[in-house]
Amino acid sequence: MELTVTLEINEKKHVLTLDSRTTLLDLLREELHLTGTKKGCDHGQCGTCTILLDGKRVNSCLILAASADQKSITTIEGLSSSNSLHPLQKAFISHDALQCGYCTPGQILSAAGFLNEPWERTTEGIKEGMSGNLCRCGAYPNILTAVQEVLENQKLLNPQKASHS
């Protein structure tokens, strides 16, 4: 069945006619060529396809584009503002939080979602909060350091928000 959906992707409105079977992940990659969002497993088991949907992190492989009608999406292509990288992107670079980089867009989008969720701001809290993203290269220690750094900076900038857990 064909249907029309309206989505706001990285602050740009798209009106698309699609097969009802299209997932958000396939829509992003195959139709819109936003290939920053990766496909690892297509079954919700790895987190490489993580995007923000109305500001919340989700696995785009398990969501029909049809059910995201009228919603807004942020992918790795839309995370940075104008010419400056997002603090998480900078921290991933400065801490070398990747090897092959395949999981990285998902890790970063997941961390972006994590920052707005009421997790305990502890090492254990970050590890558990980031456990939905697998890294086949095992770059976990540096990913943890990168996320920790952004959290620390966020605390300095906005102590009230950071103490909310």
């Binding site: 919700g44 398990l62 979602g113």
Partner: peptide, 12 residues
């Protein structure tokens, strides 16, 4: 609930 699935899955 928090012991199940992943944060991304639980958000959805």
């Amino acid at each position: 609930i928090l012991s199940g699935a992943s944060p991304q899955i639980r958000n959805q």
